[in-house]
């Protein structure tokens, strides 16, 4: 479904991503884990065309994304929940969700999808008239995910959905990620919380300073001694 081939990305003279290659198959949850600065967010930004990369290809549903502007990519069925939520704070919850469906013209089905988002996140329904900037961190994260779902994506990319949330909210968010996946959406999950990410994912890739250093089934990675030592905090 999504294939990344030898992507190299530079910030000025800094070589941030080295020959990154990985793939996501339909129906999977794939996670990219790694420490701060490993290049996880840069990969998602490259896929979404938010930053240009020097060489390599990103292929989604058989199409190369490299030359496409960022705003055309969501239309192909690829949605991106950015790091730090990035909700539109001076717009209401409902308006944020409307923005998520910006490219759609099927009013009826869009409405049905909004009801589905409200089922996943009843809190958003209660607060649909409230300005997004006044929501709590967890609610903003829910809104950010809900907003991305409004485009009815085939593949949902999420950047650090657990960041800054309380442990209870983190497990709530992760169970919703599982639900979304079971409804048929493929998920690419970027996380620092390696334990949580690997426990919901099918497969994982471990990144270190812009390189993929390890890959495998999520269960295998959870039991890998190196991963345990470096990312899970257990020996």
């Amino acid at each position: 479904m999504l294939k990344i081939e030898n992507v190299n990305l530079f910030y000025g003279a800094i070589h941030a991503l080295h020959d990154i290659s990985f793939h996501v198959a339909p129906g999977e949850i794939v996670t990219l884990i790694g420490a701060n600065g490993a290049g996880k967010t840069s990969i998602l930004h490259a896929i979404s065309s938010l930053i240009p990369y020097r060489d390599g290809e990103v292929i989604f549903s058989g199409k190369k994304l490299k030359k496409l502007p960022a705003y055309e990519i969501v239309n192909m069925g690829l949605a991106h929940v950015p790091e730090g939520r990035r909700v539109f704070g001076r717009m209401t919850v409902k308006e944020n969700l409307d923005m998520g469906a910006y490219t759609r013209h099927d009013t009826k089905e869009t409405h049905a999808d909004m009801q589905r988002v409200f089922q996943h996140f009843p809190r958003l329904k209660e607060r649909r008239g409230q300005l997004a900037g006044t929501l709590s961190g967890g609610e903003q994260q829910m809104l950010s995910i809900g907003r991305a779902l409004m485009s009815r994506p085939k593949l949902l990319m999420m950047d650090e959905p657990s960041m800054g949330l309380s442990p209870i909210l983190v497990s709530e968010i992760f169970s919703i990620i599982r639900e979304i996946n079971q409804e048929g959406t493929t998920v690419l999950l970027v996380e620092q919380n390696a334990h949580m990410a690997l426990s919901v994912a099918n497969r994982g890739y471990v990144l270190e300073t812009g390189r993929v250093v390890l890959e495998g089934a999520a269960k295998a990675l959870l039991n890998n001694s190196e991963v345990k030592r470096a990312y899970l905090g257990t020996a």
Partner: peptide, 15 residues
């Protein structure tokens, strides 16, 4: 309004 708040996020919405 969306672009004026956050241009990148707005582009991710397809704007």
């Amino acid at each position: 309004r969306a672009v004026s708040e956050d241009m990148d996020a707005a582009q991710l919405m397809g704007i």
